[in-house]
Amino acid sequence: MLNYIVKRTLLMIPTLIFISILSFFLIQLPPGDYLTNYIANKEASGGSVNLAEVEALRQRYGLDRPFHTQYVRWITGVLKGDFGYSFEWNRPVNELIWERLGLTVSVSTLTLLFTWIVAFPIGVYSATHQYSIGDYVFTTVGFMGLAIPNFMLALILMWLGHRYFGLSVGGLFSPEYAEAPWSLAKLLDLAKHALIPMIVIGTSGTASLIRTLRANLLDEIQKPYVTTAKSKGLKDTWILFKYPVRVALIPFISTVGWTLPQLISGETIVAVVLNLPTTGPLLLRSLQSQDMYLAGSFILMLSVLTLVGTFISDILLAWVDPRIRYS
């Protein structure tokens, strides 16, 4: 087991390097840089630009240097904990991203839990009551969940919540808590606001998890060992939870790694619609204005988060399923 963990950790290093290069490459892709953009905008609105100042900024951040020099500068900074400077916000990237990343992680984790809590009983029910009315209803709902675009579900739920339940929608905090220090009341406020994002982001994941669990469990229930257990007089529920469910649970763990990128993806777009103070809206904005260090740091950190998620799920999987770590 220890061997496996070490091997898996070492494998992560080249991937991390690749991810950092890709992130930096992506934000370098658009023609021009933040400063050329800035000058164009200023000139379009009739303002004048202090060219000497712009030149000084360009020199300071090495924007005129070739790609690899810039990358090396950035990545050495990142390793020391300095993510660069946000031109648009006039602040170090460090000050901007951590709180938002923290909220993204909390929303994604809550969503993951929500997904499991909903998907598990439904999946088991659907498999044990195959072709019953309940199974059909859940299957239909599941398919719908897969087909409705996240942002549209967000819009509809926001409207329903506003109209029929008087929920304050949008954002993650009520105005009075937004700037307040962390307290129990603030946490409760967060939980209340996180409900809609959780449902919205979690729906498609829940739907696919239900389908996998149902299919796996159906395969497993038909196996001879279940019949044997039955013929020996064990109780149905006991058999179900002692053996097939445990085998069918493997996808739950193995999909953590897969659902995490999906959750973060979904979170990005839903956050824009619901106006959540997470990474989504800021990333979108920074991409549009070519605020390269901010955008690059976001993409880097989101990818690292998914890598870590995949890592954890692989370790868990190896722990649950011995076949994996010896192969």
């Binding site: 990128p261 973060i264 979904g266 990005t268 990333l283 990818s303």
Partner: peptide
């Protein structure tokens, strides 16, 4: 492993 939507964006 790279989140799709940020990458697409």
């Amino acid at each position: 492993s790279v989140p799709t939507i940020p990458l697409w964006m």
